[in-house]
Design a protein around this nucleic acid. Structure first.
Lengths: 217, 217
DNA sequence: GTGACAATGTGATAATCATCACACAGTCGT
DNA sequence: ACGACTGTGTGATGATTATCACATTGTCAC
């Protein structure tokens, strides 16, 4: 099959990510080979969905047998681009920022933290694990440019997020992951993902409220 | 219009959450009234989409004028159930857990933290802001039952997540928000949201990789 | 009052995404 | 070597979600 890169649903990408997770677990549990049916069990996705998702990118299974867990994991990582290492900075070294900085998973997903910024005088100059020294936010633009940092992770309070985003963009950032509880706006050519933790809270609140109502009936 | 609670797209709920955010900003900026067009600008959603989303729940605007920002915000909060306060516990008081515990936003979204658990001996017995004392995970089931805790937030490492989820369920939890980088499985009657931060990372990696390829062409 | 106007609410339409069903390919036992 | 079998890959089908277009309704100036 031809690899059509254009029209792939975002939902598919999200699922690929979970497939990797399950495939890792499956390897630990000594399953060298797995069918779409079994994998579906594991990650709560229909078998047809899995096959369809994979078919966007090529043929990875053996008919009558299934998928080689190790090979499939590698393939998906390749598809998602997790092998490349993007020079990344985190702005906002609060609790959430620290959580992400210490997240070893961060580096396992293609991002290598090479700078950190904060506004609080007490934090500036502090050395983090990995030898990264916290710089003032006024240095964002220059540092990003000088070190060729391509990805910015925003973990500031809401009211600082847009300004930080602007500074990162001015420094030549190419991708942004925004955890601040507000959307930021950037030029079209910048890849942006707003991760809204509060919207997850809201969503749960909604679901719970619905359930309460249903029960009352 | 009749309020049909059944078939509302999840995407709509997600957007309602962003609408609230924008509406709050708009109030600060002294806009008492806003059209769907302007609101669309603000939160990067098409005007038609906004109107459609709201129409699932009723009529909130004034034709020819627009929406009262304050009133609309209140309405959406009512729809999402953010006024209710769910007794909530956080399991896993690492960096991420702490980030969420200190999140004042947490309580602003209908959740009131009333207990915290961790496995690390050094942490057990420690008092957090708000007078919450960290308990050992072995106490999860009893505490959840005794205090009538309804929501559980899981911020443990991946390998502990499922066990913790089982304990919470055993204690009679009704809703779960899982931040651990792995999906957990719970009985059908439990409301569950898996929040995958790693999948956000993967998604960004994918988008960046795509862009790199496109540029090369 | 009344008419021009502005922006909503919504049925119809289009696009997207998930599911189904089955032809087909590779494996394994005999 | 061959046939029974198992599970993939995919076109066709169905469901869900977003977009469009416009009739409708409330406002405001005069």
């Amino acid at each position: 099959m031809k690899t059509k890169e254009s029209k792939i649903p975002e939902a598919t990408i999200k699922r690929l990510s979970t497939y990797i997770n399950c495939l890792e677990r499956l390897q630990v549990e000594k399953h060298p080979v797995i069918s779409s049916e079994m994998l579906g069990e594991y990650c709560q996705v229909s078998p047809a969905q899995i096959r369809k998702d994979l078919s966007y990118f090529g043929e990875f299974g053996v008919r009558g047998v299934g998928y080689d867990t190790k090979k499939l994991e590698a393939e998906i990582k390749e598809i998602l681009g997790l092998n490349y290492n993007w020079p990344t900075t985190v702005v906002g070294v609060g609790k959430l920022g620290l959580a992400l900085l210490n997240f070893t998973l961060f580096s396992q997903h293609g991002f290598s933290i090479t700078a950190a910024f904060d506004n609080e005088p007490g934090k500036i100059g502090t050395e983090l694990a990995g030898g990264i020294i916290i710089q003032p936010t006024s240095a964002i633009e220059d540092t990003v440019r000088d070190r060729g940092i391509l990805i910015g992770v925003i973990t500031t309070p809401a009211d600082a997020a847009q300004k930080v985003a602007d500074q990162l963009v001015a420094g030549g950032i190419q991708g942004l992951l925004n955890f601040a509880p507000t959307k930021v706006k950037v030029p079209e050519e910048i890849t942006l993902r707003n991760v809204s933790i509060t919207s997850e809270l809201d969503n749960l609140a909604y679901l719970m409220t619905q359930k309460k109502k249903t029960r009352r009936r």
